[in-house]
């Protein structure tokens, strides 16, 4: 049951990734597969390379070594123009340390990807409002990020990542600032959305109870993926 990604070609595949930041080897031979529609948890101690892996998988950072293949395209070799198009149309990303635009209200932050995709302003606002509702922050629609609590900002960021109906959602600690009931609410909304739309999710978390919403877990240690224990 947990062996999704075994036989069919994975939607996203990373092989032997290496990435150094200066003298730190953030990734050191990490490999991972993601099947279409699969929810994958990425866990590991602080500094083990989770965020770096996610950035490589999402085409935000180019690995020094290794390959990332998304639906037949080699992300590690694609020109920047095609990469940013993919990030806009096929991927939704929630960064670990917020990235909402401070000058825009919550609803306009969420609507922005729709505007960039050519939607009208009224439609963008309306659909953005529905996503805020889904994540329980409709009441904060007209607030700017500076006026949101940490947990509210995370939910707005998730809504923004999902608003365009991506094939893969990359979420880096999306429940990091939430208590357990709020985490449950956000995970239920995220997983429910993914199951409905068939989106795959790469979910970084240090919280095992959040990781338990995923189909599978990979665990990073010093930039590599630890084997999931002794397999029978």
């Amino acid at each position: 049951m947990s062996d999704i990604g075994g036989t069919a070609a994975p939607l996203l595949a990373a092989r032997d990734l290496a990435k150094a930041h200066g003298r730190t080897r953030a990734l050191d031979g990490a490999s991972a597969d993601l099947a279409a529609g699969e929810i994958l948890a990425v866990t590991g101690t602080s500094g083990s390379g989770k965020s770096t892996l996610l950035h490589c998988l999402a085409g935000i950072v180019r690995p020094d070594e290794g390959t990332v293949t998304y639906a037949g395209e080699r992300l590690d070799e694609l020109p920047e123009k095609r990469l940013s198009e993919l990030r806009r149309t096929e991927f939704g990303v929630v960064f670990q340390f917020g990235q909402l635009i401070p000058e825009l209200t919550a609803v306009d932050n969420v609507g922005l990807p729709l505007l960039l995709a050519g939607a009208g302003r009224a439609e963008a606002r309306q659909r953005a409002g529905e996503w805020l509702e889904r994540f329980g922050v409709r009441g904060q629609a007209e607030l700017r990020p500076g006026a949101l609590s940490g947990g509210q900002a995370q939910r707005v960021a998730l809504a923004r990542a999902l608003v365009t109906g991506p094939r893969i959602v990359f979420a880096d600690e999306p429940t990091g600032a939430l208590d357990s009931l709020a985490s449950e609410q956000v995970m239920t909304a995220l997983v429910g959305t993914a199951r409905e739309s068939g989106a795959a999710v790469v979910l970084i978390t240090h919280d095992a109870q959040v990781a338990a919403y995923a189909d599978r877990e990979i665990r990073l240690t010093d930039g590599t993926v630890a084997r999931a224990g002794v397999t029978a």
């Binding site: 990781a211 338990a212 665990r219 084997r227 224990g229 002794v230």
Partner: peptide
């Protein structure tokens, strides 16, 4: 590692 996989 194996015990973690079983717990998860």
């Amino acid at each position: 590692r194996a015990q973690r996989a079983a717990h998860m």
